[in-house]
């Protein structure tokens, strides 16, 4: 199986659609077992381990995050938040079918709302994708927030 540029672009579109529609089980299935979601705190942050990040989550943490959203006593989700991604056509930075490794960078606007509040984040998402059993999976997703050094209120869903 050969991955094309379109396959990679579609993958990113499909992923944000799952997030916007709250199809989290499908979304968790997009990841490799040791896939990591990283959201740096510092602009151009290099060290994700020994400095604070906004998120640095493995599959256990992502599953926890997603399961919590539907819990009976998840007070900050009463009422629930909604989110919305508007994405630019992804840049395909690397297609290496021999190694089964791919890199895609996407600029996007992320909107989250709850009650009377709504906020907008400008994001750059970088997907490291790999081919596992003929399916593309996320090995690593890095999400940089344009104003990462600003003070935020709750960001409750997944940018």
């Amino acid at each position: 199986m050969t991955i094309t540029k379109d396959d990679l672009i579609d993958f990113v579109y499909d992923e944000v659609r799952m997030l916007d529609e709250g199809r989290y089980d499908d979304w968790l299935n997009l990841w490799t077992e040791d896939g990591i979601y990283w959201m740096p705190l510092d602009w151009k942050q290099k060290d994700e381990i020994n400095e604070t990040s906004l998120m640095y989550e493995d599959q256990f943490m992502l599953r926890l995050r997603v399961e919590r959203l539907t819990g009976a006593r998840t007070f900050s989700q009463k009422p629930k938040s909604r989110c919305h991604h508007v994405i630019q056509r992804p840049y395909v930075d690397k297609i290496d079918n021999d190694a089964g490794a791919f890199l895609v960078t996407t600029q996007m606007h992320y909107v989250e709302t709850r009650l009377d509040d709504q906020f907008l984040l400008a994001l750059t998402a970088q997907h490291e994708l790999v081919l596992k059993d003929d399916a593309l999976k996320i090995a690593r997703k890095r999400v940089d927030i344009l104003n990462c050094d600003a003070a935020f209120g709750n960001i409750q869903l997944l940018p």
Binding site: I49, T52, M55, R65, F152, N154
Partner: peptide
């Protein structure tokens, strides 16, 4: 370094605007 790594993990897990623990405190 493992000590500061654990501290960084605590900070982001419990006290970040993206933290599932912080969300309920702020609420």
């Amino acid at each position: 370094d493992e000590l500061v790594a654990r501290t960084a993990m605590y900070n982001r897990m419990i006290n970040a605007p993206t933290s599932i623990v912080g969300h309920d405190d702020l609420e």
